[in-house]
Design a protein around this nucleic acid. Sequence first.
DNA 1: CTGTTAGCGCCTTCAC
DNA 2: GTGAAGGCGCTAACAG
Lengths: 329, 329
Amino acid sequence: MAQIKDVAKQAGVSVASVSRVMAGHAGVSEATRQRVLDAVQALDYRPDLAARRLRSRRTDTIGLIVSDIRNPFFTEISRAVEDVAYQHRMRVILCNADEDPEKEALYLDLMRDENVSGVILSPTLPTLVRFRSSDYPFPVVLVDRCDRDTAADAVVLDNVDSAYRLTAHLIERGYRRIAFIYGVTSATGRQRHEGYVTAMATHGLETLAKGVPATVEAARAAASELARSRPLPDALAASNGLILLGLTEALREAKLRFPQPIALAGFDDLPWTRLVEPGITVIAQPTYDLGQAAIDLLLQRIAHPAQSVRRVVMRGELIERGSSAKRGG
Amino acid sequence: MAQIKDVAKQAGVSVASVSRVMAGHAGVSEATRQRVLDAVQALDYRPDLAARRLRSRRTDTIGLIVSDIRNPFFTEISRAVEDVAYQHRMRVILCNADEDPEKEALYLDLMRDENVSGVILSPTLPTLVRFRSSDYPFPVVLVDRCDRDTAADAVVLDNVDSAYRLTAHLIERGYRRIAFIYGVTSATGRQRHEGYVTAMATHGLETLAKGVPATVEAARAAASELARSRPLPDALAASNGLILLGLTEALREAKLRFPQPIALAGFDDLPWTRLVEPGITVIAQPTYDLGQAAIDLLLQRIAHPAQSVRRVVMRGELIERGSSAKRGG
DNA sequence: CTGTTAGCGCCTTCAC
DNA sequence: GTGAAGGCGCTAACAG
């Protein structure tokens, strides 16, 4: 492997000149520049990143810690982050916390060891509640999950409002006993629960909510139980795509169709929600945009460490399908 | 940030001893070890990875280049790789080539720059056909995609056999005009096509195959066309989960149900294949195991660079569901 | 078993 | 505009 001094020798210049050319610094004569570039090409020289990082104390690497890579929501986030990061010549280390706070802590530690330039984090609940930017030696941007009073850069959906609109939609369509199955282990689930509660209260309806771990299995179990309860709920709503999948499976097993006897709705516009007949009403999230906004925000923060804390809130879009068709209509 | 000499001073030993303790090397007295550990704790010392990597010329990092992160198959692979890698105290850099050979080449270059210990690669077709391990300065394990005559460590499904069994299953159930829609841009799609062709030929049936880019959209378009052709195929089979999704969407749009007038089957046991009524017959891939085998193989190769080339082939499992119910039965 | 020391490859003043 | 030289923090060879 050629190194900087080989290039210098080949080009008949000093290593300093080579370094300057590689870094694109000004103050190098065009003649020198060209000779260096030729030598680089001839020797197929690539700067050693380990040496460069040691010397410069920068890694140009950002960490992305998602809470569950199996959730398509997060794979889209990661695509966006990766796309933008590489355009800015930054590396991405992707880590999957699997909704496990310990694993998450491990990865956060690793980020410190790696001396990353910044981190995009979708925190587990315990981490979020005690989150303070100053606890980390690098800038952090929260994505998807953030509390109202968390002082941190963040990119999130309008969770409360979206859940309110989804619930109001069901009410408007004539449903009354609306059960809401939501992930208790995430801020997102809780906020969406809040929107549901507000919508029900506003319309003078009784709530029927059930918090579960945000997994397909837990959601299915919860829905199975509801399907056996009497009186039967007349609608089921899910706080995310995984839970919605669980609900749908449970209804299938219980041989209950939708919208009759039970309507169905949820979050995340996944491909299968269109396939299951007659289609499931959902709040679509601008997933790629959320990821893009997060990395943009992080890059800004890295460039301007002192800039004021900002939060980007994106609007969820209600997509009406057959699963919430007008009751008795 | 504390560094090694601070620890040495605090513990009253030399930096060499600290280095030995940190590396877990033998040949350090228990007393020294304990004093070092105490000092490390007291100062919250973490070795600087950039310095360590520069000096030791090892990164303990492996690269994982998947061809499409949106395909759930690859997210499972990445989970497995990550789990195993971190157990072995290795880092993972995950890259998504998006089925784009240029992007893939870029990432392969990056792996070289990063001086990774090894790479797990799911290659695009152009890369695979000219693949030679010796072209890369690091060990490579192919996953999911590999040609019969590629001399490289690899972990793959028994693609030809699985496709044969899937096709034979349809034939046995009474279907005759079986159309196979497969991804032409991947070795996997081609091999599965081969299994389909063999099965059809063995049973004296005419093939009706259509190669498409491996995307939901392309598959949907191809299926729409088939749905308008006369005579209508009596069965549709897909070479992977993305294509199967496209086929299913096209049948929905064309208001064609399954198994009558058209049966349906494919690869990848995704959650939604159970949800769509009456359930879709698929070949299930042991995705997590495939990923695990790939990283195991890579770690072995890193430990023993000279060991003979090995290939791990895993069996796909046929899961019969309503979409391929006996014809006229 | 422990300490001393010479670099790993590069960047970046500092002189010229 | 260019070159010489020191050192980033650590590991490993060597000496004791």
